[in-house]
Design a protein around this nucleic acid. Structure first.
Length: 476
RNA sequence: UCCCCUAUAGCUCAAUCGGUAGAGCGAGCGGCUGUUAACCGCUAGGUUCCUGGUUCGAGUCCAGGUGGGGGAGCCA
């Protein structure tokens, strides 16, 4: 910045952290005006935010500043400013400290205040999705951004402290069937005029990678390979699903945390998921008390107590078979479900909700599902009917974790693939892990956006990711 | 992909039986005030999503389309 006096800029969060001890010190802040209120007594009040914390800081701009009439009185919501001044104890109510300005530089004005999309008033989330490039300027999305960051850092912190190595698994994959839904094609071929094989099919041997490639739907198969050498690993990055899902819980591009542990069984897997979630939420309450207070005040009054409740008690663990029994017992007592409950079929959303919300009231680890409703790589249990799979169901959001102990025995794995119509040859490198020093191992996927929804009470995953990708929507 | 709901001012919404467009907030201007979801007054602001149909007349009824929302399925 070209400014006459050189004061190192402060973040607003650190001014609030220092509080009244900073009174009297000269400071510079840089940010955007939220609101301006004028007093004809000869001052204007500017609420200025730089995004470093929830609260904006109040800047007191006296009318004798040289640009008061020409610039400051024209600067409203959304305008960017650099303010030099002195930290002062506020004479008004509502804030402890404020900045008595000696200089206010209006860096960028707002073209047309009447049509500036982020007005100083409540907006619907549906509307804000249409101005996703400006919505980080609102209270809610600023808070989401900081909460998301804190939770992401807590993920890395937990794994780092517990001896896990972060593996950067690839985004582009040559596996055309990772077993988790429709995939987005990656290609540099001319869509209008692709090369053809003699049979008339598109000739992907002429494509960039010399084969069909897609965006990954899961880093699991790749991360398992590194698990078989580094013992405890995880991947944390974006994943892509081309499902035509139109719900508040699904995105075409979402972030997933997938740890994988060698010499671990299903119980250790559930232990890890529980400890990870508890670490994330502990850090959240410690670091983002201001933002969580906002969510509790304006979005979901239960959100802090829900997180505290999760932290204070162990997750309930229940076998799928027991879950079905509980649901049947509930039906006997008069509970109505739209869909029938039957051992061997996947539970409906309403069934999962009953278990976690009504029966237990906390997250539930549901374990040992029927093998026919689960993926090929999940380890067969000795009963011949179930596999060592677990889902963690959370009140309000449903499934936030899906995991399993993996099938480490080659003959079992091959048999399962054939049974499910998969060709073992397509998985040659995955099978190699079972041929060379195979060990029992387990892992899971934690949906990052669903975790944020759970913690904040936000109603839609589209509003907890900076730029939501959903069917028919990729404007920004 | 299926079911239901929905689209009016910058935003959130209203408009009776089909009769010719209204409020709040926001914005601009003025007043008042160490203000703080400020307050008081005035002013501006409309292709009623698109295409077609019914009707003397359509924001309103009908058909198709598009966008948005909720639920289901798929899953994280």
């Amino acid at each position: 910045m070209n400014s006459p006096v050189s004061i190192p800029p402060s973040r607003i969060a650190s001014l609030f952290a220092t509080g009244s001890a900073a009174v009297g010190t000269p400071v510079r802040i840089q940010g955007w005006i939220r609101t301006r209120r004028d007093s004809k007594a000869g001052i204007s009040f500017l609420q200025v935010s730089d995004g470093s914390c929830f609260d904006p800081i109040q800047v007191v701009a006296p009318a004798d500043l040289p640009n008061y009439q020409s610039e400051i009185l024209k600067a409203g919501a959304g305008c960017s400013v650099v303010v030099d001044g002195t930290v002062a104890a506020s004479q008004g109510k509502g804030q402890g400290i404020e900045i008595q300005a000696s200089r206010v530089e209006v860096v960028g004005l707002v073209d047309d205040p009447d049509t500036y999309p982020i007005q100083p008033k409540a907006h619907s989330f549906e509307y804000l999705r249409e101005v996703a490039h400006l919505r980080p300027r609102t209270n809610t999305f600023g808070a989401i951004g900081r909460v998301r960051h804190t939770l992401a850092m807590a993920v890395h912190e937990y794994f780092h402290q517990n001896g896990f190595v972060w593996i950067h698994t690839p985004i582009v994959t040559g596996s055309d069937c990772e077993g988790a839904g429709q995939m987005f094609r990656v290609s540099t071929l001319d869509l209008a005029n692709p090369p053809r094989t003699p049979e008339g099919k598109v000739d992907f041997s002429q494509d960039f990678f010399g084969r069909e490639t897609h965006l990954t739907v899961s880093g699991q198969l790749n991360v398992e390979t590194w698990c078989m050498a580094l013992s405890k690993v995880y991947t944390f990055g974006p994943t892509f699903r081309a499902e035509n899902s139109n719900t508040s819980r699904h995105l075409a591009e979402f972030w997933m945390i997938e740890p994988e542990m060698a010499f671990a069984d299903l119980s250790a897997d559930a232990d890890c998921a529980e400890a990870l979630l508890k670490h994330m939420f502990t850090r959240l309450l410690a670091e983002r008390a201001d933002d969580m207070k906002f969510f509790a005040d304006r979005i979901d009054k239960e959100c802090i107590s829900r997180v505290e409740k999760l932290l204070s008690s162990p997750f309930e663990r229940m076998d799928y078979t027991e879950g079905v029994k509980q649901l049947e017992a509930a039906i006997t007592k008069g509970q109505k479900f739209e869909y029938p409950v039957k051992w061997g079929t996947d539970l409906q959303s309403e069934h999962e909700r009953y278990l976690t919300e009504t029966l237990v009231g906390r997250p539930v680890v549901l374990m040992n599902y029927p093998k026919d409703i689960k993926a090929f790589y999940m380890r067969a249990n000795d009963d011949g009917k179930t596999v060592a799979a677990m889902d963690i169901l959370a009140p309000g959001i449903g499934e936030i974790v899906g995991g399993s102990q993996r099938e480490e025995r080659l003959e079992f794995l091959d048999a399962r693939m054939i049974e499910m119509g998969l060709n073992p040859k397509d998985y040659w490198w995955y099978r190699d892990l079972r041929r060379y020093g195979s060990v029992p191992h387990a892992g899971f996927g934690l949906g990052f956006e669903r975790t944020i929804v759970y913690a904040t009470g936000m109603a839609n995953v589209r509003d907890v990711i900076p730029f939501a990708r959903t069917p028919k929507n990729c404007e920004f």
